[in-house]
Design a binder for these strands. Sequence first.
DNA 1: CGTTTTCTGGACCGGCGGGTCCACTGTGGT
DNA 2: ACCACAGTGGACCCGCCGGTCCAGAAAACG
Lengths: 193, 193
Amino acid sequence: MKLTAKGQATRQRIIEGAASYLRGDGAASVTLDDIRAITGTSKGQIFHYFPDGKEELFLAVARFEAGRVLSDQQPHLSALTSWAAWERWRDSVVARYRAQGRNCPLGVLMGQLNTTPGAHEVIGTLLDRWQSELREGVAEMQEAGLVRSTVDADRASAALIAGIQGGVQVLRSTGSVTHLEAALDLVIDYLRG
Amino acid sequence: MKLTAKGQATRQRIIEGAASYLRGDGAASVTLDDIRAITGTSKGQIFHYFPDGKEELFLAVARFEAGRVLSDQQPHLSALTSWAAWERWRDSVVARYRAQGRNCPLGVLMGQLNTTPGAHEVIGTLLDRWQSELREGVAEMQEAGLVRSTVDADRASAALIAGIQGGVQVLRSTGSVTHLEAALDLVIDYLRG
DNA sequence: CGTTTTCTGGACCGGCGGGTCCACTGTGGT
DNA sequence: ACCACAGTGGACCCGCCGGTCCAGAAAACG
């Protein structure tokens, strides 16, 4: 499908409008009609830019949001070379999710995209990238002699990912970030030895 | 509402039938008609036993499943008094979720019950109970001198809960239990000092 | 027994929401 | 200027699904 500049802009407007809607309150479930209203478009346009309909659109939004998850942690995530940097990263993660509160755009999206292969792929890619940045950070700390070399960087980064995911999940049901903080702090303490 | 013995039995059949259906494959979303077919009942019965319809029924199923989550960890969960006991508990959790695989009944249920207060309450209660058993276990280990007293039992149990939740979430998207294992093992290592 | 209450089956309804269609309006290229 | 094709609006369709209703079977109760 050929897209002119105008077309590109509209397509992007749909994706970002949907994303920003999901970031707001009261977005337990989303319909194409919601998105149409919010983005000031029409059914025709939605199916013009996303011929496969809901799934294709929602996947695009999910990819967009997944990108934000990582970029919101920058520049800290890519430079975990000192304890101070780790702390800054930890704080940025907590701040981001505290601000997000109970509304988890990706969570809602995953709930709607009922376990389609594409949905798994988006989440899988996100977690992979995320974890390898963390693993890299741990490895660098080890090379600098700041983390004992007996620590398994793979396992530690996996535990961080799990802790964050779980912390966010708890945040979604209880509205509290204490679990997220506990998980992050405990793993960092573990790395400190 | 008065329920005869027969009525009780039917009601329970509906709940357990729905639960067992959710435990199986291909249950990305569930409709009342699915449940009707599976449990060999009729619309009339469903609304007879669950006058508030879908939400009431699904909450009942969620409570049932939440109970299973804890009872599946027994007797280990309530007797975390030695490192061997902790290992047995860890193994039982991993085994349970490995067997469950990608199908997370509670996860699906939460996806359908769109953030109703009742849903949060069920999850909140489950996590509270779970975490206090763990905190109790950590405290007992400290009293026995097996865990250093500087460890914050509250934080450690919160981190465990987060790690488990996140591990299960990763399992749901990737099909792998490595994150769950990493989180559990790292926290237990941390407790060991 | 009879009667009252519970239990069961299933036809039916209404609206919600994804998806289709088509006519109309730009816009870019030659 | 024209034409082909991208972009836009919105009416319309239809299957799904939660929920209603009622009639009849079956218990419980006196």
